[in-house]
């Protein structure tokens, strides 16, 4: 057999970056305020990636020298990783500086995510906290170049045996048991109305609002939007109980369903 170790691999992933919302084009004022903010928490901002949001600025019809802004940000210690809400000219400048343009999330206002579950759908504006998720890899693409993906719910009635994998682009509902060594994945929520012994990964494309529901939790691993727990970390109290699992401030919460 030929050993074929891959050269590279593409994976869908999300990472978090602060967003800088500009209300003025006064570079001196911007620089001064930035230094003030950085002095409050120097370690937090040091070498931090930064998303630049120009929507407020453009609402005020203020012009901006984009390359000057990028230079300023780098000088202060940020790494600009993209812009959004820019006009045509600003997008062009950003592209010249090799900065990606975020087009997906141009709609809607930032909403702080609460405990309420929100259905993630590409056609709807995404719910986003002040810190927005940026999809990676992301190319500077033309607006509306991303076709909406139809998220389908998959229903499985047969047992999922060891070694089997199920993937749902929407929600995944399983009526039978999921054996140890099986892997079930969904971009949305996962429901298992039986014993869950395998691995369950919900919100695999970064939907932090996704949840896992199961009738009897004995999983090897549970994960929501990349945050995971192995069976070793599972609380004995919720083991073998009907539970729901959700994400709160990057922590997986396992709650018994009474």
């Amino acid at each position: 057999m030929v050993n074929t170790s891959p050269t590279l691999e593409f994976k869908s992933s999300t990472f978090f970056a602060p967003i800088l919302i500009l209300y003025t084009n006064d570079m001196i004022a911007i620089e001064q305020t930035l230094y003030e903010k950085i002095n409050l928490a120097p370690d937090f901002f040091k070498d931090s990636p930064l998303m630049i949001d120009l929507r407020e600025l453009n609402k005020l019809n203020l012009d901006l020298d984009f390359s000057q802004l990028a230079q300023l940000l780098r000088r202060v210690g940020f790494f600009p990783v993209g812009i959004r809400g820019g006009n045509e000219q600003q997008n062009k400048q950003a592209r010249a500086l090799s900065l990606p343009i975020d087009t997906v999330r141009e709609l809607g206002n930032p909403i702080i995510i609460g405990e309420t579950q929100k259905q993630e759908n590409t056609q709807q504006p995404l719910t986003q906290p002040e810190v927005a998720a940026i999809k990676e890899p992301k190319e500077p693409v033309q607006p509306a170049a991303i076709p909406p993906v139809s998220a389908t719910t998959i229903l499985v009635t047969q047992p999922i045996r060891s070694g089997q994998r199920i993937y749902a682009s929407g929600d995944l509902i399983i009526l039978s048991q999921v054996s140890a060594g099986a892997e079930i994945m969904a971009e949305g929520n996962i429901h298992v109305y039986n014993t869950l012994r395998g691995r369950a990964l919900a919100g695999v494309h970064g939907n932090t609002a996704a949840r896992i529901f199961c009738f009897d939790l004995q999983a090897e691993l549970i994960s929501i939007a990349g945050d995971y727990k192995t069976s070793e970390d599972l609380n004995k109290q919720t083991y073998s109980s009907p539970v729901q699992i959700y994400l709160q401030n990057h922590a997986l919460i396992i709650k018994e369903i009474a």
Binding site: Q158, P159, I160, R161, S162, G163, Q164, S179, A180, G181, A182
Partner: peptide, 12 residues
């Protein structure tokens, strides 16, 4: 566990 794996193969 191996039997469980086999059952998965049988069904697919």
């Amino acid at each position: 566990r191996d039997s469980d794996r086999m059952l998965g193969i049988l069904s697919s």
